[in-house]
Design a protein around this nucleic acid. Structure first.
Lengths: 350, 350
DNA sequence: GTTAGCACTCTTGTTAGGCGAGTGCTAAGC
DNA sequence: GCTTAGCACTCGCCTAACAAGAGTGCTAAC
C-alpha cells in the first residue's frame, strides 16, 4: 500500500473504467474482463490497456480477483466511490411514482398497515428484502388517559399519545369501583401526565404520586397503576416488518443453501436486527459490506431512510441485499417512499 | 393392483416390518435396506425374508423405491397407517410440560403475544416450522361500543367484544360534537348491538337504524358509522403467526435451493395458507402428503389442533414439515399446548 | 503510452471407471 | 412351503482425467 506505484492515482480514465466495471457487474453479477469491457463500452481503448488500468485499480484496492484468470470484481471501496460520486441519479418513472403515492397515502389512519404496505411495495419494486420499523415512542407525549368501566370487575385502560397512537388493555381488578371514581382517576392522571413524554413518565415515581388522595381512591389507583405502567412500557416497543424474504432466492449471490441460510437466519434475529436499524443515523444512509459493524452483514449492503410522524417521531424504511445492488434505483425509491410517508403522516396518527 | 398376489394381506409380521421401516426412516431420512433392518431390529428374520416382505409391501402401496437399488421409503399411505394404528403414544417429559405450561399461562391478557409465544415454543421443541392463527371473530358477540372525545375534531371509536377483544380507531370528524351526544350515541349503539355477533351486525342495515333520531344526532352518526363498520370489519381479520421458518434448512428433505424456495414461497402466501388452516376441522388433524388439497403441499405433512377462547371461539396451532416427521412427539406437543391455551383462555381475552 | 501476441492459469463441463449399498432371483435347506 | 444363502445386476455417487473457454500478465513491437 505504502509504496504502491509512486504517484499512481485515480485519473479520469480510471474512474471511467471503474464506473463501467461496477455498472456491468451490478447488472450481470459476473466478473468483468478486459475484452468485454472494451467491446461493450466503446471507449476507444484496447483490452490490453484496460488490463493495465485494471491492474492499477486493483493495487489501489478498488477491484478484486476471485482467482487468477477471472474478470475483475468491485470491492466495497469501489462501491463506496460509486455511490458517493460515480453513479447517476436515478429518476423514477412517473407510473411508479404514482403507484407509490397512491399506496402510501390511502387509508393512513392505521400506521401499521401503511408501513406494511410500504415494505411490501419496496420489496416488490427493488426485488430485494425490505423492512420497516415504527417510530421509537419514547419522545411521544401523552395526551390523555381514560379508564373505562367494562364489567363489574373489569376495567379498560386506554392511553392516547399526541401522535395519535392509542393503546389499551383490559384489566380485572379486585376492588369494587364506581364509574365516578374511574372518571376521577382518569382526569387526575391525565392532568398529571398530559404533555409529558413516555420515557419521562416511566422513570417517575408514580405510585407515590397517588397515595395522598382519599383512601378508596388510593386503593383503586394501586390496582390500576402497575398495569398502566406495563401498558405504557409496551408502547415503547418498536415493531419490525419485513417483506420479500424469498426474493433472495433469485439473487445469484445467495445461490447456495449455506448462504441463503445465513442470510435468513441473520434476519430472523429480529431483536438484534432492530437494534442495528435503530442505531443508524437519520436521512438516507447506505452502508456497504464491511462498513456494517455486524459480522454477519459483511457481504450485504443496507440502505435505510427515515420518515417522520408529525414532523417529529422517526421511523425507518429500507432494504438489505448483496453489495452488488442497484444503488441508484434503490436509493431513489426509498427516498421517494419515505418522503411520501412523512407527508402522509404530517399531522396524523402514530 | 387388481390381481395383486391373491390374498396377500397385512400380516402381523408385515406390520412389524412396516413399523420398523417407518420409525427408522423418520429417524434417519435414509432409505432403509433389508440388511440394516434385520441387524438393527432383532426380529429373528434374515435379510432375504425381509426383502420378500418388503416386496409385498411395495406392491400393496406402502413402500416406494427411489430407484432400483436403494432401500425402501414409506409412502403417504404407510405414514397414514403408522399414524392411525402403528405409532406409540408419546408421553412428554415433565420438564417440557412444565416449560410449556409456564410459557402459556403467564401474562395471558394479551392474546396475540401468548399465541406468538406458543408458535415460538412449538417450533423450538419440534424443530419444524410452526404457525398459529387467532380465532375467527365472526361469532364473537359485541359487549359495548364507546365513542370518546379526543380533540375538538377527533373522536375515538372503541369496540369491545364479549371475548374481551377490544379494538379502537381514531377518527377525524367534520361536524362539531358534544360529549353528551357522543355518550348518547355510544349508549344507543351499545343498546342496539350488545349481544349480537359481529357477522350479524355487518350484514344489518345500520345507517338506516340511526336516521330516525334527532337531526344533529343523525348527522353525527352518519359521520361515525362508516368508520365504525370498517373497524368492526377489521376485527374479523384472522392473524397468522409463524415461527421456525429457517428450521427447514436443517431438514434433509429441503437440502436443495429449489425445494427450500418452494417451501418458503408457499408459506409466504399468507392469505392462501390462512385459508387452508381456517378450513380444517377442529381437534387434532393430521394430513399427510397427497392428502393435502393444495398441490404445493404434496410432500408436506400438516398437523393442527384447535384451542378455544371462552369455550367458544376457535383458533388453531400447528406445524408443517416434510412427510417424514415425528408424528408421535409432534402430535403430543401440539395437543398439550392447545389444551393449555384453552384452559388459559377459559374466561378470558380474545 | 498503447497495443498485439502468446503462454499460463483457473473454472466449468463432460466422460469414464471404481466403489458401495441394495435389490431380485435362484437354488438349497429346514 | 416358508426361509435363507449366494450371486449377478443396477444405480447413485465420488474421483480423476481431459478439453474448452475466458481472462490475465508479460514482452516486445508500434
Amino acid at each position: 500500500m505504502f509504496f504502491a506505484g509512486g504517484g499512481m492515482e485515480l485519473t479520469e480514465r480510471k474512474l471511467k473504467i471503474l464506473q463501467a466495471i461496477v455498472s456491468d457487474f451490478i447488472a450481470s453479477a459476473e466478473p468483468v474482463g478486459s475484452r468485454t469491457l472494451s467491446r461493450r463500452y466503446g471507449m476507444g481503448i484496447s483490452p490490453a490497456t484496460i488490463r493495465n488500468e485494471m491492474s492499477d485499480l486493483e493495487e489501489l484496492g478498488y477491484l478484486t480477483h476471485p482467482h487468477t484468470s477471472a474478470g475483475r470484481v468491485p470491492s466495497d471501496r469501489a462501491y463506496r466511490l460509486y455511490v458517493d460520486s460515480l453513479m447517476d441519479r436515478f429518476e423514477l418513472p412517473d407510473d411508479e411514482k404514482a403507484r407509490i403515492s397512491e399506496q402510501l397515502t390511502r387509508d393512513v389512519t392505521e400506521l401499521d398497515k401503511t408501513i406494511m404496505r410500504a415494505a411490501g411495495l419496496l420489496s416488490e419494486i427493488t426485488r430485494l428484502t425490505s423492512f420497516a420499523i415504527t417510530p421509537k415512542q419514547g419522545e411521544n407525549r401523552l395526551r390523555y388517559i381514560n379508564i373505562l368501566p367494562a364489567d363489574p370487575d373489569t376495567v379498560v385502560i386506554m392511553i392516547a399519545a399526541e401522535s395519535g397512537k392509542i393503546k389499551n388493555t383490559v384489566l380485572k381488578i379486585k376492588v369494587p369501583y364506581t364509574d365516578e371514581a374511574l372518571s376521577l382517576l382518569s382526569k387526575s392522571m391525565t392532568y398529571s401526565y398530559r404533555g409529558k413524554t413516555i420515557s419521562d413518565i416511566l422513570t417517575m415515581d408514580i405510585i407515590r404520586n397517588f397515595e395522598t388522595d382519599i383512601e378508596a381512591m388510593s386503593r383503586l389507583a394501586a390496582n390500576i397503576i402497575p398495569n398502566f405502567m406495563a401498558t405504557l412500557e409496551s408502547m415503547l416497543d418498536i415493531d419490525l416488518y419485513m417483506d420479500g424474504l424469498t426474493n433472495i432466492f433469485s439473487i445469484p449471490e445467495y445461490n447456495s443453501l449455506e448462504k441463503a441460510k445465513m442470510f435468513l437466519e441473520m434476519l430472523n434475529r429480529k431483536d438484534s436486527f432492530t437494534d442495528v436499524l435503530v442505531n443508524r443515523d437519520e436521512g438516507v444512509i447506505i452502508t456497504i459490506g464491511n462498513e456494517n459493524k455486524d459480522d454477519m452483514m459483511h457481504d450485504c449492503s443496507l440502505i435505510t431512510a427515515t420518515y417522520h410522524i408529525d414532523g417529529k417521531l422517526v421511523g425507518k424504511l429500507g432494504v438489505i441485499g448483496p453489495t452488488r445492488m442497484n444503488y441508484d434505483k434503490v436509493t431513489s425509491v426509498i427516498e421517494y417512499m419515505t418522503e411520501n410517508l412523512s407527508s402522509a403522516f404530517e399531522f396524523s396518527p402514530g
